[in-house]
Design a protein around this nucleic acid. Structure first.
Lengths: 150, 150
DNA sequence: TTAAGTGCAAAATCTTTGCAAATGT
DNA sequence: ACATTTGCAAAGATTTTGCACTTAA
């Protein structure tokens, strides 16, 4: 079963980061794992009404500090969270990263495995991390409007 | 005189957008114009203690709606504001844009006139706006640490 | 003169924090 | 059994809003 497999994986993941395997944490992890785009704190809260808001903040902050998830800001400046890919789980995050912000559904897609073209910055700027973010229409919303037009 | 010249320019700018030329607005404009990086609301507030906080929010929102300034979020998710370049003053913002986020001073530099390399997105994603954001060390902070190392 | 903008104060949000009870190891 | 984590409630911070007064056009 996938759910069980994930539970093991998540338990492991938490253990590796010296975090106790608690129910709220596992639920946050599986929620984030189930989506291919980043989820905002309000959205998480809506789905997990029974988890205390303060606890949710603490969980998200802890996960972020440990590098389990990363935070991106959407068009409204709201923090959205996504699981880090395995390659950035241990301390250093990916160097290059594309975030696609859909103007319709407002979801943030993390398109990690895209090779970004080289970039030449003005003199003196020392980049540590590049992230390209695009706004536009995501496949899901693009499809919807096609249908509407029929 | 530069100050006077700016006042005229800003008055004009406001008029073009059907906004009254008020003192708080002119001060916000000249503050933003004086920097080559985006300024956060808290920073603006600190400098302009005598302008009411609510008014400041309203001014910034009005400017943003009119396309006079644009908003970018820094590493902490705080909104930072910068004057739009002339090319994006009228309604549509620049398509391509580089924001450089300094991890030391936390300033956000808008490096507009940089040509971004072409990018190929996964199928279905329709980009409307691309913006590359980098984190790293800005020239000013890079220089400081050089000196410290001597 | 009058519509728009400001300042002040109150409300609505959003986020963090302290502490006692519950939970994982 | 003990250190962590949770839930609840209170405190802080941030942002928005209503309204009377002021100001630019």
């Amino acid at each position: 079963m996938n759910a069980n497999k994930n539970k093991y994986q998540f338990g492991d993941l938490l253990a590796r980061h010296h975090l106790k395997k608690t129910e709220p944490r596992l639920r946050v992890l599986s929620m984030l794992a189930s989506k291919n785009f980043a989820t905002s704190q309000p959205d998480l809260e809506d789905v997990m009404l029974d988890i205390d808001r303060g606890t949710l903040y603490r969980i998200l902050n802890a996960f972020e500090e440990k590098g389990i998830i990363h935070k991106v800001f959407d068009l409204n400046g709201t923090a959205n969270y996504a699981l880090c890919k395995s390659s950035c789980e241990e301390n250093h995050h990916h160097d290059e990263h594309l975030h696609f912000n859909c103007v319709v559904c407002n979801n943030v897609y993390c398109l990690d495995d895209l090779d970004l073209p080289a970039l030449n910055l003005p003199a003196g700027f020392q980049p540590m991390n590049l992230s390209l973010s695009a706004t536009g229409i995501c496949p899901k919303c693009g499809k919807k409007s096609d249908i509407t037009e029929n």
